[in-house]
Each structure stands twice: as C-alpha cells, then as structure tokens.
Amino acid sequence: MRIVVCIKQVPDTSEVKINPETGALVREGVPSIINPFDMHAIEAALSIKEQLGSSAACSVCVLTMGPPQAESALREAVSFGVDEAVLVSGREFAGGDTLATSRALSAAISKIGADIIICGKQAIDGDTAQVGPEVAEFLDIPHISYVKKISGISGAVIRAERMMDDGHDVVEAELPCLITVVRELNTPRLPSLKGKMAAKKIEIKKLGLADLGISEEEAGFKGSPTQVKKIFTPSARTGRRMAEGSIEEQVDAIIKELMERKCL
C-alpha cells in the first residue's frame, strides 16, 4: 500500500496583512505553514498506515509543488512520521492555476505510484478546492471529496463518509482513489523526536519539468487558462442598523421595515 499526500505551503493567515494599495497579500516576513487542511490529510495517511500495521508494508509519501523553500513544509511533514518527501520545483511551474498545478502533481504521482492519494479539501490562500478533484481527473481515477470519516479500507475498496450540507453520503470507491479531507476527520498529531531527527536527515527527491514529461506550454503561467486580472478588498457594506427594544418590538420593527420595502 502506498499513500501519497499532497500538501501546500501557505502563509500563516492568522499573521497575514493586506496591502491596501494593491489589495494583494503582504507575504514578506509572514511565516509559512503547512496548509491546515493538509495537516488532516497527513494525519489520515499516518493513521491508515498504523491501522494496516506492518503486514501491509504501507508507506506514506508527501508531495508538494512550490519554490525551493517549500522543502521546509516537506521536512515538517516527515517529523510527523511520513516516510518519503518529493518536491516538484522549477521556474516553469510559477504562476500556475489549478489546472496547471493538477497536471504537474498528477504527473508526479504517476511517477511515484499511489494506491491512495489524500489532499486537504482546499488551501487557505487560494480556497478553490479544485486541485484534489482535478488531480484525480488527470489520473483518471475516482475521487471522494470532503471526507469526514474513513470507514474502512478492505482489499481494493475504500469506504468513506462525505460531508454534505444536510448530513453525509457513504461512498465506496475502488483503489487507486483520491480523497480530499475536512477538519472533522481527525486531530493532527504532534511531531515525534524520532520524526524530527529523520526530518533533518531525509533526502528530498526533486522533480523538474523534464522529469515529469510536461511541456513548457503546459506548465505554470503558460499552461493556465485562468488568469487573475485584479485582486481587491471589497468595500465594507454600510447602512446597517440594529433593532432595539424587547424581542417583540424588534420583530415588529423588522416586519414593518420589510413591508415598507415591499419584501413582505
């Protein structure tokens, strides 16, 4: 059994500021972290490995695409107990949208080989939630998104609960399969000492454009059909009023207001 976890290094949004002139995130001096949803993906992989035990010869590989400094996110993943780490990196990959990113990640996964691929449901900087499912499409394998519980893996089938607005679906899929996970799935563990020591020493495998067999036109900015035209902070809505008085008075005031505006 081989599990690949896709992670992304993102700015710690609890520390992030927005440049009021350009509307863009100020990334200078902001600490980088592993995307919080991906922490749950790592935990899911490690607990599958533990549940299967040593008999299944299960290994967990963590994969990211990013600049050279994304290596620190991979090393952190190793400190939790991940066995291998792969970095897809190169100038050609810069500026990629979800399509170009998924293309590169899926090519890397084809090289690494995987029975289960686990992603966080979305990254907290882009918030698209598209990369996981797109990777599955490129690989032409089934995917289950928003997994909140992994009920079991037996033989070549995974059974999981997919979170929905009004409850959950129970979904079965054949392996190889990709899942994206939500926070409700688990509580990420802390690093271990042996993991931290391994993280210092581990050799991170690096893959570039040539290794993945992707052309320059398919990668990064050039391979991205969506392009960001403008980023801006929406102006705060004004004209808010609070109803006052007892609950009854407040309700009356609101009904009156709605009727005046012909909403009721």
Binding site: R189, L190, S192, L193, K194, G195
Partner: peptide, 20 residues
Amino acid sequence: KALAQSDLFGLFIPEQYGGL
C-alpha cells in the same frame, strides 16, 4: 498519549531497548 507519540517516554532509555 501525546508524550508517548512524541517519543518522550523513551528519552533516557538506551536505544537497544527502544529508547533514544
């Protein structure tokens, strides 16, 4: 449990017996 998972119970135990 967290201390166990982090290997801290094995700090002062020799490596041949599973410690650090």
